[in-house]
């Protein structure tokens, strides 16, 4: 992450602001920064989305590939995650510099998204034990300005929403050998149900209060943060404390409650936006990075 240096005086200023529920950029403690979402930005993927949250920018591309189900779960497909911390975000990520952060992020994403409660993995199965769809979810960090988890999870949800998997037809010949045929028609495709796909909310403990969507400056003032993944219904599916400092149990409860509230409120406008974009169909003007 791009390093910021915050002086003592600045820290005090940020801390006092948060105490009074007024942050440096004018937001309240539970407000997100300006967010932009666009789906279908990379045409040689099966689903993609670009999300900017303040100055944080991520691009997610999903490719569906045929694979073999895991022996323990023969009736389910699975997801693979890869986070590429590119040098575009900060020169520190050059060469192998971003690998550590990338692994940490992708491991969390596995825990949050790769289970049957979040994504309908059964629908990815083609023939039990033999063939299934593997969704390769590749996250590309283009710019880091704090709150990576939230931005990535929003982008993944949007990309999953826009993913179109071609329908397959299985035919068996006399000897029982199965053959898979992909549909040629690009409109003959399967969509994923993203109803239960959670979004991650990161809460940063700053002073005695906590904030959502912390900027890098605010993050520099915080002792530790809690990431919570929340579904549309407000169910918490994953929780993790990150950062060096320690948190007392009481504030963890408080933060969980706040996370639930914020996360639930995050889903409705997101789904609205995605459906609105979907309705525009081919009339939609693609902006991508040119806007």
């Amino acid at each position: 992450m791009a390093t910021v240096q915050v002086s003592e005086a600045e820290k005090v200023y940020i801390l006092h602001g948060i105490r009074d529920d007024l942050r440096v950029d004018g937001r309240g403690c539970e407000d997100y920064r300006h967010t932009e979402i666009e789906t279908d930005v990379v045409s040689n993927t099966d689903g993609s989305a670009k999300v900017t949250l303040g100055h944080t920018a991520v691009l997610v591309g999903i490719k569906a590939d045929l694979g073999k189900p895991k022996p323990m779960l023969p009736k389910e497909g699975y997801l693979e995650f890869f986070v590429d911390c590119s040098a575009n975000a900060t020169p520190e990520f050059e060469g192998r510099g971003g690998e550590e952060l990338g692994t940490e992020l992708s491991n969390t994403l596995y825990k949050v998204f790769n289970n049957k409660h979040s994504v309908d993995l059964k629908s990815l199965c083609i023939s039990p034990g033999e063939h299934c769809w593997v969704l390769y979810v590749d996250v590309l960090l283009l710019q880091c300005d704090g709150n990576l988890y939230d931005a990535i999870s929003i982008a993944i949800k949007a990309a999953l929403f826009s993913t179109k998997i071609p329908k397959v037809h299985i035919s068996a010949d006399e000897e029982g050998a199965k053959e898979i045929e992909l549909s040629d028609d690009p409109y003959d495709c399967m969509r994923l149900n993203v109803e239960n796909v959670p979004c991650i909310v990161t809460l940063c403990k700053v002073g005695h209060r906590h904030v959502v969507d912390a900027t890098l400056q605010e993050k520099a003032c915080s002792v530790a943060s809690l990431i919570i993944s929340v579904t549309q219904k407000g169910t918490v599916t994953c929780m993790r404390k990150v950062g060096g400092g320690s948190l007392d149990p009481e504030s963890i409860f408080e933060m969980t409650e706040a996370g639930k509230r914020v996360g639930k409120a995050l889903h409705a406008p997101l789904m609205d936006l995605l459906q609105q974009e979907e309705r525009l169909g081919t009339k939609r003007q693609k902006v991508g990075f040119l806007g």
Binding site: V42, N44, S48, G61, Y136, D138, L140
Partner: peptide, 10 residues
């Protein structure tokens, strides 16, 4: 560098 999803084959 090339994004992992940039080519037809991942």
């Amino acid at each position: 560098s090339m994004a992992t999803f940039s080519t037809a084959e991942r």
